[in-house]
Amino acid sequence: MRNKRISGNIKAIPFLLPFFVVYVLFTIWPIIKGLQMSFYDWSIIKKIRFIGLENYAQMLHDPDFWASLWHTTLFVLFSTPTMVILALVLALLANKKSKLQAFYRGAYFLPTILSVSVISYLAIFMLQPYSGFINSFLHLIGIHAEPFWMAGPHLAWVSIVGVTLWWTVGFNMILFLAALQDIPDYMYEAAKIDGATRWQLFWNITLPQLIPVGRIILLLQVLASYKIFAQIMLITNGGPGTSTRPIIQYIYQTGFHKYNLGYAATMSYGLFVILLILSILQLKGQTSQGGES
């Protein structure tokens, strides 16, 4: 028995080792290293000084930290529901029998394959005031408004959420679409015989069947939205002022513009804890709900 186990160990090592090494080096070690760095005045040129919990105290009193965390949360609150609902609508549209079905699916998904820099510059050039495509199109059809899509703090958020929606909603749509196609036809047939209207079919069969995948999409979307950064940095660069700056950008700027890696690592830990709590809460909610049904 013992021998068998040991031989199992030896056999397992070559299979496990490659992943184990990269995983420890690039996923686990950074967590530990980050904790260490958060206790130091750690500049990018490596002037290192132990300061205990000072970074954490600074974080709690740093209005910019809370503001940028709030911006990210705001984005999550706005983008998540719209993203999930629009994905569902698109999936329903793309699931209808039509000659153009393949075209619809392709079109809704196509923006997803573009690089973040491409979609950001597309957005910049389309949303520019006066000469941008959208505003000049508005003028063309007789609307003489001049919305400043990227310069007003509220409108800038609308633009960022809109662009992100356009860019990534296709991904969620595909997940919904797959779940839609998994709903067996006999369920609909049976209900139709009972004289159910289309609305009733949707409400009583389609929607309940989509709830499990909907939950997964919700969880993935919340986590993904909390990581928002690149398109904001490229489109508004956190502006006007700092009114759209997300937490990841603030962490990056602290580390690489202000060269304060220690404080940046501290705030990363703050974000880490928040994301951890969120995913535990969601997992808990999921399992308890799953238990009820």
């Binding site: 160990n9 397992a12 690039f26 967590i31 951890l276």
Partner: peptide, 28 residues
């Protein structure tokens, strides 16, 4: 493959799922 500490190693890998890459960029 049967080997010792299998469960432990699997849980050790699961931890990584909880860590968002963005939060470890600075130490990385």
């Amino acid at each position: 493959i049967n080997f010792q500490y299998k469960k432990f190693i699997f849980i050790f890998f699961l931890i990584g799922l909880m860590v968002p890459g963005e939060a470890t960029l600075i130490p990385l």
